[in-house]
């Protein structure tokens, strides 16, 4: 069924793209001889089709349907981009947080080595600070969230934090890679829309000129 549907469509392009953008995009751009694509993305973001030979491509398709399909895809990219940007910003905030915690922990470790108790001021409430003396300690409480704090030794907590930092950095790198890929695909989609549009304008102008020369032949 799907096979025969795709065969039909190549001779009569679908104008409605409802019911699966990915599907209609696949069907419309199913012409390997004149469609090029970027390398696939490791996390499965669909690539944008780049049509190398527009006149040949449009022999079996309607330009409106093609532009609409790319437009839909473009909208999808923009949507994905927004959610990825939010994730990226989140991670960009999280990483300095972890670094800060690590530096506080390192400070504690350094102080523990000197064997003397040391004084700190800590916040009781906004704008209210009080003093505390930290005796030589071996453990530290890490706030894990959900009202849970777990006591770790210095080495354990350092390991945990360093692992968290590493994970956050890896995820951030992946998100950035996806964003770059997504922007590349958006650019391809933008350029494609412009190319099809310009091609269409040119075609219309040509056919108008032809009509014009036929009717005004005598004047010229």
């Amino acid at each position: 069924m799907a096979q025969s549907a795709s065969l039909n469509i190549s001779s009569e392009p679908q104008t409605q793209t409802q019911g699966g953008i990915a599907h209609s995009i696949e069907v419309i751009f199913d012409m390997p001889s004149c469609v090029k694509r970027s390398e696939p993305n490791p996390r499965g973001i669909p690539s944008a089709p780049f049509v190398t030979d527009i006149p040949q491509f449009l022999q079996t398709r309607k330009v409106e349907a093609v532009i609409e399909a790319i437009n839909d895809l473009y909208g999808k990219y923009k949507f994905m981009e927004r959610s990825l940007v939010a994730r990226r910003d989140n991670l960009e905030k999280k990483i300095p947080d972890i670094k800060n915690t690590l530096s506080a922990l390192q400070h504690l470790i350094d102080k523990a080595e000197s064997a003397e108790p040391h004084d700190v001021d800590f916040m009781l409430h906004d704008n209210v600070y009080t003093q505390a003396t930290i005796q030589k300690t071996k453990t530290v409480g890490l706030w894990l969230g959900a009202n849970v704090m777990v006591e770790y030794t210095y080495t354990e907590s350092k390991d945990l934090l360093e692992r968290n930092l590493e994970n956050a950095k890896t995820t951030l790198a992946a998100v950035k890679e996806d964003l770059a890929y997504l922007r590349e695909q958006s650019t391809i989609a933008e350029v494609s829309i412009a190319r099809f549009f310009n091609f269409d304008v040119k075609q219309r102008r040509l056919s108008k000129q032809q009509e014009g020369t036929e009717t005004t032949e005598k004047k010229e």
Partner: peptide, 29 residues
């Protein structure tokens, strides 16, 4: 968008497209 003077415009090929993408990526960076 397109004026008569641009009619001799070059068609965008895949290599050009890749360069345009690269430029856009660099601009973001």
């Amino acid at each position: 968008m397109m004026t008569k003077g641009d009619e001799a415009e070059s068609e965008v090929n895949w290599e050009d497209q890749k360069q345009i993408c690269r430029f856009s990526q660099l601009n973001n960076q």
